[in-house]
Nucleic acid binder design. Structure first.
Length: 250
DNA sequence: CCGGGTCGCTATTAAGAAGA
DNA sequence: TCTTCTTAATAGCGACCCGG
């Protein structure tokens, strides 16, 4: 058996690494690898298809705002492909219309993802209204709030503001009354995957949970298996249905 | 402190495009 | 056409935040 030495410095930028919960982190804020990962995450969250690690590298992107100053020719040259360039350019332009709920979740702010952004969108209408009391009202905890405010002042106002094409307005949560909260147990017959079924349910106005939380009102069990979820649902008097399509109505 | 839930990371599989 | 490169989509899981 050979002992393995943990690295002490970041393989990318060379700065000193820091242990946190058995994981090593590079805390340098000028680390190129980190910035590339952030761009990746940004592209993925905003569904800019075609902008993966390799493309980011070839295009020489070092920060998020640079995505939006690229011309189709720049991309074509960098990727040496007109076909990919055309697609990617369209994806980038398309992403500019994203509501701020999605955009905010794309910045890699710790604890600020899709759900946190959605919570905020119920309280405030645009980025200028982000402050401590509104975060609290939206149901964000102290850590999440701290991270968000830090980002807002350090990164947004002192850097990104003015060089990104978004309108920074939250999309108001849909006013549709929720029909119910659904949890799916076991394999489905009506849909190939749970993800597809979830999307269909959300589209119809249902809320979908992956576990049987107390706000679940309908349990879908198409397999007939008496799963733990099924048992518990029976106990708590939750409606159990055997065909998901009854909810969708198609 | 505990249970529920979200976030972020990873592995896996599939699919599209380029290059030989 | 076959292979290789790159990205997409998704599920599983651990960490830990949030609220009671």
């Amino acid at each position: 058996m050979q002992t393995i030495q943990a690295p002490t410095n970041c393989p990318s930028c060379g700065s000193l690494l820091e242990w946190s919960n058995d994981l090593l982190y590079c805390r340098s804020n000028s680390c190129v690898s980190q910035k590339q990962k952030k761009i990746e995450h940004f592209a993925k969250t905003l569904k800019i298809k075609g902008l993966g690690p390799s493309a980011i590298n070839k295009l020489g992107l070092t920060d998020i705002d640079e995505i939006y100053s690229l011309t189709e020719e720049d991309i074509s040259e960098g990727l040496s492909s007109e076909k990919l360039a055309k697609k990617l350019y369209a994806e980038i332009k398309n992403s500019e219309a994203a509501p701020f709920n999605t955009v905010l979740a794309a910045f890699s702010i710790p604890l600020i993802g899709k759900t946190a952004s959605d919570k905020l969108s119920k309280i405030i209408t645009d980025i200028t209204e982000i402050n401590e009391s509104n975060c609290k009202a939206a149901g964000l905890g102290p850590k999440a709030t701290e991270n968000l405010l830090k980002w807002l002042h350090k990164d947004f106002y002192s850097f990104y503001d003015g060089c990104l094409p978004f309108d920074f307005k939250f999309e108001k949560a849909s006013l549709v009354e929720t029909l119910g909260t659904v949890c799916i147990s076991g394999k489905l017959k009506s849909y190939k995957t749970k993800a597809l079924a979830t999307a269909a349910l959300l589209d119809k106005g249902y809320i979908v949970k992956s576990s049987l939380t107390k706000d679940v009102t309908i349990l879908v069990n198409e397999s007939g298996v008496e799963s733990a979820k099924t048992n518990q649902a029976r106990k708590s008097g939750i409606t159990i249905i055997e065909n998901l399509l009854d909810l969708i109505g198609e």
